[in-house]
C-alpha cells in the first residue's frame, strides 16, 4: 500500500482558519491528508500539542497563524514563531527531521495560498516517508 501521510494542522481562528474556510467556499481542491484543529491564536499552540500529534501517529504537523503585524491578539504569532524555532531544534535533537514541522502565515484572504501550502506540505511529508512514532513508542515502552 502506498504511503499516505497523516498530517495534523493547528490553525488560528481569525486568519488561517478563515483562510482555510475561504479555500472551501471558493471550491479550491487540496490533498485530503490534513486534519485541522482550530485554536483561537497560533500563540495557543503549545509545543506539547505538536509532540502529542507526533506521538499519536502524525507524520507531519503544520501550524498556521496571521501574518506578522496582523495578529488578532497583537503578537501571539510572534510567540508562536519563537516556540516553533525552539521546537525545530528539539525535534532535530530527538532525531526527527525538523521539516516535518512547518509554520506558515495564512491570512483570511489567502484561501489559494492555503490550498497550495497543504498540497506542497503533503508532498514534502510523502517524500520524507512514514514516521511511525506511535508504533516505535509502543514498542519501546
Amino acid at each position: 500500500m502506498s504511503f499516505n501521510p497523516k498530517i495534523v494542522a493547528f490553525l488560528c481562528n481569525w486568519c488561517s482558519y478563515t483562510g482555510a474556510d475561504l479555500a472551501g467556499t471558493s471550491r479550491m481542491k487540496y490533498a485530503p491528508n490534513i486534519r485541522i484543529i482550530r485554536v483561537m491564536c497560533s500563540g495557543r499552540v503549545e509545543p506539547t500539542f505538536v509532540l502529542s500529534a507526533i506521538k499519536e501517529g502524525a507524520d507531519g504537523v503544520l501550524i498556521c497563524g496571521c501574518h506578522p503585524g496582523d495578529c488578532h491578539y497583537h503578537e501571539g504569532n510572534y510567540k508562536c514563531l519563537r516556540r516553533y524555532k525552539l521546537l525545530k531544534k528539539y525535534l532535530t535533537q530527538m532525531g526527527y527531521d525538523p521539516e516535518r514541522l512547518h509554520l506558515e502565515w495564512i491570512s483570511a484572504s489567502e484561501g489559494k495560498q492555503f490550498a497550495e501550502l497543504v498540497d506542497a506540505f503533503t508532498e514534502k511529508i510523502r517524500s520524507l516517508g512514514a514516521l511511525n512514532a506511535k508504533q516505535i513508542i509502543e514498542t519501546l515502552t
Binding site: K6, V8, R35, E46, S52, A53, E56, G57, A58
Partner: peptide, 14 residues
C-alpha cells in the same frame, strides 16, 4: 481538550 482532540483525530486515522 486539545490533546483529546488530537487523539480523537489520529485514532480514526490510524
Amino acid at each position: 481538550q486539545i490533546m483529546s482532540q488530537i487523539a480523537g483525530l489520529m485514532q480514526m486515522v490510524l
